[in-house]
Design a protein around this nucleic acid. Structure first.
Lengths: 359, 359
DNA sequence: CTGAAAGCGCTTACAG
DNA sequence: CTGAAAGCGCTTACAG
């Protein structure tokens, strides 16, 4: 007969230890005061209500016992958990890593914790969506910060996932006015500056590499690109949609380059796509930027790893996370945050130059 | 006189809404049963104890009210929060993004959530350590999974941070036998294979680019490298330590290349460092791999972005996170997990070739 | 300045 | 098969 349960001993030992953890009652007893007094002291609400002598006694007793308040009990009592859920497409993309870091820091300043989970609407991963609902189902949440997704997808996700589908919500890098308050990078201005830069260099025939992801940020990039070209007659653009990987982007760039009058500049909607464009250009024996200019978007690490280093638009991922978290915490406090737009920055490096003398 | 507090109205409205959330008592009343029955049904512990008719009534009532259990209350009652803290050096490094994803998935399968925070011992960030203790201070934790750090640093961190400094702990990518159970990638085997590959190609003069980070993983890489060379007489190695950035690595590589008899292969302890080496090699007008071979470690995205694509050792970051989480959850269940080592894999690409004919 | 008491929303013996 | 009760560990009026 096989054993049916886990060995009883260690588990029992652990439970014992947990049960043994000191509570505020223990502290009160040791300090010779009531539980209320202990609570007041720990919350810093004692001045004018508890004598300094008593405060000292409580602090000493707490230290002696190694007392740490039980958060679950606080949460229950307070009706709040000081935890927010961050929903991002994929944490393996360093852009979202930076968003998370910014958000966590801003949360920490106001005594909040962040739990993250990758959303299943994610693009560009090799893995099937996993059972993300679980990740949140057992977490007590106060609010949700979501990045780079359609409001509808998120709403759907939360409906099946969250203990409370109408949690306070702020969206990052998403369409403003669609519902919840948004905090965005000003991708339009960045794309405007980038396109103007290329136009100023003399480029008129453009190739566009855009990802096959239908989110606000890429639509906004496209629109800003179109708008920037609008005032300039004699320009031509061919567009290739591609999966969000280096190799697919390279293939798409090849298609663009196969044209009878190929573009003199490749405007890629992301640095990863630009890296793919580099490969295609190089495979054809062309030089960047002498024969063809290439631009990216985001300014991730790879922008300075590839050579020549990439002209791109720097997006303030870290500040986006921080500002988004602040807005969310404001919302939690009953203030209604404004839709916000954080400036990006055109970073001109070596991948752009005037087009070659003739076509 | 300036306003002193937040506007009262919206906050009040929100509290009202929160207070209004249905509890198991509400469900019980609507279903015409007791709270205990509701609890039993939701926990799936009803078979043999509650009639099917009653179960149906409870489920209908729950659905009608949109009932979701209050997690804080469950946590208090159960003495467990089903939440584990993941400590990583930096989430902006995609390696740790993958670790997190793996860990979250494994946690989700067992109904656990993950809260992450970047540890302040992190290397290679431009930011000062932030008040990370806060990130965890208000979170109720059951266990800790920590990656890529010295046990002592972690212990110190937890002592000031965690509600319970002796939480069950598993360490990833860390020295085995130093205390807690570990789950590692077999970096030694990977480095052995890599070095053997280079030796087989005919290389004898090596340059080493190692980061100025004193963690187990880099020590292990160095030791494995030394061991692999040990049996092969007539080899020579010069080593340069560098900060963990592309540009610092490039500078360090230049120093190596300045030698009278420069290395014919640069063995870099990380892909990011290899990217720096590429820059130095190229700046000198040398070709990879014809004039000099370069290798990396990790197999991050940048390994296939740089050209030629990088020969490196693939580390199973995702599986590392998943296996680490499983081990931790086993530990929580009272089983004592074994120290584990996950195989890496030598990935031979275009950056390695035989050394040039003569020196 | 301090304490006794209620109650947050669950789950689980226990009694019937 | 079902319900009444206790209690997890806090915080906060309330009374003194």
């Amino acid at each position: 007969m096989p054993p049916t349960g886990p060995p009883a001993d260690p588990a029992a030992a652990k439970h014992e230890r947990t049960a043994t953890r000191p509570t505020s009652k223990d502290v009160a007893k040791l300090a010779g005061v009531s539980q209320s007094t202990v609570s007041l002291v720990h919350a810093g609400k004692w001045p004018g209500r508890v004598s300094e002598r008593t405060v000292r006694a409580v602090n000493e007793a707490s230290a002696a016992l190694g007392y740490r308040p039980n958060q679950a009990a606080r949460h229950l009592r307070l009706g709040t958990t000081r935890t927010v859920l961050l929903v991002v497409p994929a944490l393996t993309n360093p852009f979202f890593g930076a968003v998370h870091t910014g958000a966590s820091e801003a949360a920490a300043l106001r005594d909040f914790a962040v739990v993250v989970f990758p959303s299943p609407v994610e693009a560009g991963t090799e893995r099937a969506p996993f059972a993300s609902p679980f990740a949140a189902a057992h977490t007590a949440l106060d609010a949700v910060l979501a990045s780079s997704m359609a409001y509808e997808s998120l709403a759907e996700l939360l409906a099946t996932t969250s203990p409370n589908p109408d949690l306070p919500l702020v969206m990052l890098d998403s369409e403003p006015g669609a519902g919840p308050p948004t905090v965005n990078a000003d991708v339009a201005a960045g794309m405007h500056d980038l396109t103007t830069h290329l136009l100023g260099l003399g480029h008129r025939r453009f190739g566009r590499l855009v990802p096959d992801i239908d989110t606000w940020t890429f639509t906004a990039r496209e629109n800003a690109y179109r708008a920037a070209l609008h005032g300039m007659p004699g320009t031509r653009t061919t567009t290739a949609r591609t999966a969000f990987t280096v190799h697919d982007a390279a293939r798409a760039a090849h298609a663009l380059l196969d044209a009878a009058h190929p573009p003199t500049a490749l405007v890629c909607d992301d640095d990863v796509l630009a890296a793919g464009a580099y490969k295609a250009v190089r495979a054809r024996g062309l030089r960047i930027p002498e024969d063809i200019s290439v631009t990216g978007f985001d300014d991730l690490l790879i922008a300075t790893v590839i050579e020549p280093e990439l002209t791109t638009v720097r997006l303030p991922a870290h500040r986006l996370g921080a500002a988004g978290m602040s807005a969310l915490l404001d919302l939690l406090d009953g203030r209604r945050p404004q839709d916000t737009s954080l400036p990006g920055e055109l970073v001109i490096r070596r991948s752009t130059a005037p087009p070659p003398p003739t076509g």
